[in-house]
Design a protein around this nucleic acid. Structure first.
Lengths: 201, 201, 201, 201
DNA sequence: AGCTAATCGAGACGGTACGTCTAGTCTTAAA
DNA sequence: TTTAAGACTAGACGTACCGTCTCGATTAGCT
């Protein structure tokens, strides 16, 4: 077998992503310029574009990186774990909320920009959905274990429940512009677990 | 004194908005180019910019126009009205989903772009939040009447419930990319009303 | 008739060409960067590209400008006017010779680059040939008047003669790399007028 | 001691030059991309660059190869040999004229590119001038023999004459864009030998 | 046979110029 | 003062190209 060519530098991904995260948080999506990312990472633009063919690809890679750092803990008490998990998601959103802000705009434009970026390219969208699928799978498992333990209803629509909880956070951040935090997470969990219908006496 | 000089053409707003809606649905947010909107509407760019100082302003105006067509019905049975209302929202989202799509990308990038657009300008954001606030107020009222009628719990966190229902739709469309429709709306309402916790025996 | 839009700024051509000439002479063809020309001229890049769609177009415009400054004088004595004219051409070539030189390279790369630039685009090539055609027409006229006056042979091949004289200058500058100046111009004229064949006695 | 390490493959030079000639004639100077030359020759870029440190070096090597095939014949009749020689040069130029042409551009950009290439690197320039010097030496010798034989004036400025003849060809091809061939060569020789001045009666 | 040193193949990398694209402003003449 | 038309500003973005570097795999001569 002949040589396979010069191998890719392993530290490039690391350095570029770090620089990109920095820039994204500093200046928001508009400020995430490939030129400057490359410069900060000490890498040629061509190298950057070889791995992320578009600014959007890079941006979504950043999200994936940030997302994958999140973990989930299962204490056996769903009423404790669920708010904790939601709070983590909220923290991520809040972090984006501060990104590149100049005034006092309460909405999280950067999150929206990233979703939009993903949607602009079929391949990126697929990648992004994978990232979220990984996260969601963990949460689904958490909920199912609670079902098995008898903490939650046996015929629970786990997917619907999870969408409701997470979705509420996103909706509030993206659309309503209201704050999300521990307190809100607990309200959500409480409302979802108890149910809205008047209890049968 | 006002009323000096040539008066504004009255039909411009209408024509431009129509052209903008067309373009937005045809080609998505990126395809909504001010130049082309102006051309389609048979109007000079100057004229357009005098009324909407930014592409983003125009875009949100388009959404407002689309949104305000939605109505809400109160039959007195919350288990019927709620899914109907969610379905309307879903229909709006699905419409955006088709905007400017070439392949089979399931996500609704255009919605995200619009949110991002709103976040880029404080006034646009405020305007957009108003649009949503109007819609939400109707839904809140609907829910509160159901509480008063005794269909829903007296101590219900109406805001949290509403966020969960609507948020789930947005989350699914924006992030997960899965379909939303009548069936999903019913799953949501069912899950939310019954509650996730195991029923006390 | 409706308005014809904002007219082109008249001073742009002037400013850009001046900046381009400066840069070309300072740093040679490679240093003639559209970005920098635009900056020096205080003009946006798009404006520049609207008029010269390519760096090559710009470069050739520069040559045209330089060339058209040359004039031709007709004193009635062809043995005086011809060397003078050739000297002017030589001066232009020598000016280019200094352009962007770092070391002691004797050849006139910039001239060659400009010819190459013209050849890369059919439209530019045509334009450039026009420029030269103008110059050549003047010289041809000069020679023909000398024929009429009886200074030159009645059956002279004016075109061939002119090509020989001018061509020798270009050849020397481009290929041989030897100096061209007044003395050389006179050698050329002398050789050409007397003829190479042994005189019939 | 030399001779250590793996020896260079002997057939590389040949193959690369052949590929380079092909490409140059097919697509002109711009199409002479080192990457593609290497690929066509079945050679790694490294290998290519070890021998020709620059695309320009390679290009000039190609020209040298093409040029050195030219020969010169001395029949003893300068009025026959000179046009023949010029025709050969013209043939070389015309060959370049076709290089990389798409439309009907009459100028020989490739020749200019090569001159420019030579001017970009002192060593390449020197090399190229050597190539031309060899050719010119032959022509000079031819002319001097004609002087000795009494066919040409004893005090002839051989250099000037040669520059005029060859230069006219280059000027026509590079600048004017007009055709060069046998007929033109004869016009040149005729004009140069007879002289332009009116013959003394 | 093993060691040494240079070449080869493949392809990533660096650097930089070039041209495109898009949003929004400005300048005319006409209405 | 608005409208139409279109030139203008500003800057990000991605591409193209050349030449360098880094691997692993060869291929010789020397010991």
């Amino acid at each position: 077998m002949t040589g396979r060519g010069r191998p890719r530098r392993a530290d490039v991904d690391e350095g570029v992503l770090r620089a990109a995260i920095e820039l994204l948080l500093e200046r928001g999506y508009a400020g995430l310029s490939p030129d400057e990312v490359a410069e900060r990472a000490g890498v040629a633009k061509t190298t950057l574009y070889r791995r992320w063919p578009t600014k959007d690809h890079l941006a979504v890679a950043v999200v994936a990186r940030l997302q994958d750092d999140d973990e989930i803990t299962d204490s056996g008490d769903i009423r404790r774990d669920l708010p904790a998990y939601l709070e983590k998601i909220a923290a991520g959103l809040n972090r984006m909320r501060g990104a590149g802000r100049t005034g006092d705009d309460p909405s999280a434009g950067t999150v929206a920009e990233l979703v939009a970026a993903a949607a602009r390219h079929p391949d990126v969208g697929a990648l992004e959905r994978d990232v979220y699928a990984r996260r969601n799978a963990l949460a689904h498992a958490l909920l199912e274990r609670a079902v098995e333990r008898g903490e939650l209803r046996a015929d629970l629509d786990v997917e619907a429940l999870f969408d409701q909880l997470t979705g509420a956070l996103y909706y509030r951040v993206l659309i309503t512009g209201l704050p999300v935090g521990r307190a809100y997470a607990e309200r959500l969990v409480d409302t979802a677990l108890r149910g809205a219908a008047r209890e049968k006496e």
